[in-house]
């Protein structure tokens, strides 16, 4: 079993960046699970957090902005035996990649998607993101943001994701558990990881989160969808005074690969190429 899945590559993140905590949490989850590193594919988009694939020594694709989930889907459909993990930021996943987020959720592909949510565009030096709170002044909203932020938890549940959780990079051990269980979950697992940007987001700081986050206790029923949606919108109903952490929704539903007529037969990459006879008999149908 590997003692670490981290590579020797130094992350590009600022000192104190929330993404370090997420990196540690993912590394711990992988160590706990002990998956052969050659059987792991980590797909990133573009942005600070999307550079995370380089910091692991597994197979990885550092793709293009917003397209984490389409690439991850292609990998998972081609080789079901790989553990596929998507990583990226809130701009990547909920902004430019928003369409893919919704559709990947309803497909219930067996992919774990970790979104490092810092409520700002960091690598482009501080513009508003889809999760920036109303009133926040950023380089692109100098008079304060006037758009309602996306609620990734309620969107994910509504769209059909079957494991929806929120973690906090300030509590990497808790986050690691959420990621580990997300990987173990058969289906699309979304983990919104609150990951403060210490350089461009002066509002949503570690302290700001620590005053507001709380962990769901054992009495919380994650399998009840109506209840989960109610919990998902607690951020809005309390005007961001209470932010629940933990597994908010979980459902057991067949995955895409379990339902697809071809993939039911096994991993696509292991299925044989057509023989000449098969091609000829196919052609005969056109004579």
């Amino acid at each position: 079993m590997a003692t670490s899945y981290a590579s020797d590559i130094k992350p590009i993140w600022c000192p104190g960046c929330g993404d370090y905590g997420v990196h540690a949490a993912l590394n711990k989850a992988l160590i706990d699970l002990g998956i052969d590193k050659s059987k792991i594919m980590i797909v990133g988009g573009i942005g600070c957090s999307s550079a995370m694939p380089h910091t692991f020594s597994t197979y990885a694709i550092h793709g293009i902005h917003g397209r984490v989930l389409p690439i991850a889907m292609g990998v998972k459909l081609a080789n079901d035996e790989l553990t596929v993990i998507g990583v990226g930021g809130d701009g990547d996943g909920y902004g430019i990649g928003g369409n893919h987020f919704v559709h990947t959720a309803r497909r219930n592909l067996d992919i774990t998607y970790i979104v490092m949510d810092n409520q700002i565009y960091g690598l482009t030096t501080g513009q508003a993101s889809p999760t920036t709170l109303i009133g926040t002044k950023t380089k692109s909203t100098p008079f304060g943001d006037i758009e309602e932020p996306i609620n990734p938890i309620s969107v994910a549940i509504s769209a059909g994701a079957t494991y929806v959780a929120r973690g906090f990079s300030g509590d990497p051990m808790h986050l690691a558990e959420l990621i580990k269980n997300g990987i173990l979950h058969k289906g699309f697992a979304v983990i919104d990881a609150l990951s403060p940007c210490v350089t461009f987001n002066a509002l949503n700081t570690y302290d700001w989160f620590r005053q507001r986050v709380y962990k769901l206790d054992a009495s919380y029923k994650a399998e009840d969808k109506a209840n989960a949606l109610q919990k998902a919108i607690e951020t809005e109903t309390t005007n961001w005074q209470k932010i629940p952490l933990g597994l908010i929704y979980k459902e057991n539903r067949p995955t895409y690969n379990e339902l697809d007529i071809t993939l039911k037969q096994g991993s696509l990459i292991k299925q044989p190429l057509p023989t000449k006879d098969q091609v000829r008999s196919l052609l005969d149908g056109y004579a």
Binding site: I64, P70, M73, G74, A78, N79, H103, I269
Partner: peptide, 20 residues
């Protein structure tokens, strides 16, 4: 069938990367 052609090509890249 994908939600758009952006997904179509990126999923194709993912599948080809995985070896099919």
């Amino acid at each position: 069938q994908t939600e758009d052609e952006i997904t179509a090509i990126n999923a194709t890249i993912g599948a080809a990367s995985a070896g099919v």
